[in-house]
């Protein structure tokens, strides 16, 4: 297991290096610059700014300079918010986005797995069609539509829940978490249904029934572990997707998370901020995928043995 872990870590390094390089040159290639604004600044000011941020150097020098800084863990100053470093801004936004992503994941798992299991127990019956149609709707519905609908119903209509903010008033975390999690709940429901149906058709389920086990024990003791393996494989990419995709929800609900900073940075050509966030997210994606692979190995004893043998 440890060797597997180290092997995967070694594979991650070139991936992240390529991400850094590609992002660095792509943001520079985009038209406009960090100091373009509606009110044009005098040329000498721009020149001073460029000098200060080392933007007057040759592109490759800037690139190697940047690499040197990241190697030391320094993401540089924000080009837009002059007094703050990228590290500070990430440190402020990431915990909020992370919290949101985790709540959304919990929503997705609880709703998704239960709906998928309910559907798989009686396939091709109303018990299957109803949750699966809802899941299909969930996949089709983008969060920028679902968010406002939920706000209209529960925030403005019933006035049960606050419609914006994060941690200012009780219950303001509920609507964003549901909005963000529902698409993933729908995917997980479909994966769970598929996985469970496959496992329930296996011979060993018949064996379990022949032993006299009740349906509930068959499902929880014998079927669940195998049936959830597609879901486990999906967890890594799902959490990464939640983190990277949270900006829509953060914008709708006015949440000061990383996603909003990220989108603003892109609009503002805040080079260091874009790069810093991209690197962080790609590291998280690599790490989470690795964790979900490890979880899959841990769940499947056959894979675990073949890993040991290698």
């Amino acid at each position: 297991m440890i060797r597997f872990f180290i092997g995967r870590l070694a594979q991650a390094i070139p991936v992240i290096f390529i991400v850094i390089t590609a992002t660095f040159f792509m943001v520079r290639a985009a038209p406009g610059g960090p100091f373009d604004a509606e009110k044009t600044l005098p040329p000498e000011v721009i020149e001073r700014l460029n000098e200060r941020y080392n933007l007057d150097a040759a592109l490759h020098e800037q690139y190697f300079d940047y690499l040197k800084h990241i190697a030391q863990g320094d993401f540089g100053p924000s080009f837009r918010y002059t007094n703050r470093t990228v590290t500070e801004m990430i440190a402020a936004g990431l915990p909020i986005t992370f919290e949101l992503a985790i709540y959304a994941m919990i929503v997705a798992l609880v709703i998704g797995i239960s709906a998928g299991m309910i559907a798989a127990i009686k396939p091709n019956s109303p018990q299957d069609y109803i949750p699966m149609s809802l899941a299909m709707t969930g996949i089709c519905m983008p969060s920028f539509l679902l968010g406002p609908i939920l706000v209209l119903i529960f925030g403005i209509g019933f006035q049960w829940l606050p419609v914006s903010g994060w941690g200012y008033s009780p219950g303001d975390k509920i609507l964003p978490s549901i909005t963000l999690g529902s698409t993933y709940a729908a995917y997980i429901a479909r994966l769970t249904r598929g996985g469970m149906l496959e496992v329930l058709a296996q011979d060993y389920i018949r064996t379990a029934k022949a032993k006299g086990l009740a349906t509930r024990s068959i499902i929880f003791r014998h079927a669940l572990r195998g049936g959830l393996s597609p879901v486990v494989a999906f967890l890594g990419p799902a959490i990464a997707g939640l983190l990277a995709g949270s900006f829509v929800v953060e914008t709708i609900f006015q949440i000061p998370g990383l996603g909003r900073f990220y989108v603003q940075a892109a609009f503002n050509r805040d080079y260091t901020m874009i790069l810093g966030t991209t690197i962080l997210l790609s590291c998280l994606i690599v790490l989470l995928n690795m964790l979900s692979d490890m979880l899959a190995v841990w769940l499947n004893p056959r894979l675990a043995t073949s890993q040991q043998e290698q």
Partner: peptide, 20 residues
């Protein structure tokens, strides 16, 4: 089932739960 009448099946690889 399993108490008074038990069964053994053809293929013991697929009839045993690989996860347990």
């Amino acid at each position: 089932r399993g108490k008074r009448i038990s069964m053994i099946f053809q293929d013991p690889m697929t009839s045993l739960n690989p996860y347990m």
